Simulated scan of single mutants.
Amino acid sequence: MTIDSQDPTRLADFWGRLLGYVRLENFTASIRIGPPDCRGPVLLFAHHEPLPVSKNRLHFDHA
């Protein structure tokens, strides 16, 4: 899942702590995080400016 952000580092750190995810190797300027055992969904945080005027809705169920 890719998420646009003006501050991808901050957002990736927040979600990483919340989900227990770690930073994964990435070959672009974006930040990739996922489970330490590499079994589960991966989140990619990309820098994007300016952000859209409308709300960027996200619903993430984690069981």
Rank of each mutant, 00 (worst) to 15 (best):
M1T: 00
M1K: 03
T2G: 12
T2D: 14
D4F: 10
D4R: 15
D4N: 15
D4H: 14
S5G: 09
Q6M: 08
D7M: 04
T9M: 10
T9W: 06
L11F: 12
L11H: 12
L11A: 11
L11V: 13
A12W: 13
D13T: 09
D13Q: 13
F14R: 14
W15F: 15
W15N: 11
R17V: 04
L19E: 09
L19I: 05
Y21V: 02
Y21D: 04
V22G: 03
V22H: 10
R23K: 15
L24T: 05
L24S: 04
L24H: 13
L24I: 03
E25L: 07
F27H: 11
F27I: 01
A29S: 15
A29V: 09
A29Y: 12
S30T: 02
S30D: 14
S30M: 02
I31Q: 01
I31N: 00
I31H: 02
R32P: 00
G34H: 05
G34L: 01
G34R: 03
P35G: 00
P36V: 01
P36C: 01
P36E: 00
P36K: 01
C38N: 13
R39H: 14
G40R: 13
P41R: 11
V42G: 03
V42T: 06
L43V: 00
L43C: 02
L44T: 07
F45P: 14
F45K: 15
A46S: 15
H47Q: 14
H47F: 14
H48S: 14
E49T: 14
P50H: 11
L51Y: 06
L51P: 05
L51C: 06
L51M: 14
V53W: 02
V53Q: 06
K55V: 05
K55T: 09
K55P: 09
R57I: 11
R57A: 07
R57G: 04
L58V: 14
L58G: 04
H59C: 03
F60L: 15
F60P: 04
D61N: 09
D61E: 07
D61Y: 06
D61P: 03
H62F: 10
A63L: 08
